[in-house]
Amino acid sequence: MIARWIEYLRERANIVRGCFFAFLLFAVIFDFLIERPKPHFFGDTIIGFWSLFGFLGCLLMIVICKGLSHVWLERKEDPYDDR
C-alpha cells in the first residue's frame, strides 16, 4: 500500500517538486510576518538569514567534506587490510 502510494508520487515528480519550492517560498514569507524575540546575535535581526545559512552551510559542507575526502581521506578498499 505504502509502496504503491510512493510509486504514485514518483510518477508525478513535477508536482512534488512544485510543492517543495512552494514550501521554500512559504518559509521565506513566513519569516517576514513573524514577531522577532530579543536577538542573540546579528543574524537574528536579518530577515531570511537562516535560509541563506542553511543553503550555504549545506553547500559548503558538501564541498569541503567531499573535497577533503577526495584528496586526502578516502581509500578504495579497507586501508588496514594489508596483512
Binding site: 517543495f20 518559509a27 519569516d31 531570511g48 537562516w50 535560509s51 545559512f53 542553511g54 543553503f55 552551510g57
Partner: peptide, 13 residues
C-alpha cells in the same frame, strides 16, 4: 521560522 528555513534550504542544497 528558523527551522523551516534551515531545513527547506538544506533540502534545496
Amino acid at each position: 521560522s528558523e527551522t523551516f528555513q534551515l531545513f527547506g534550504f538544506t533540502g534545496l542544497g
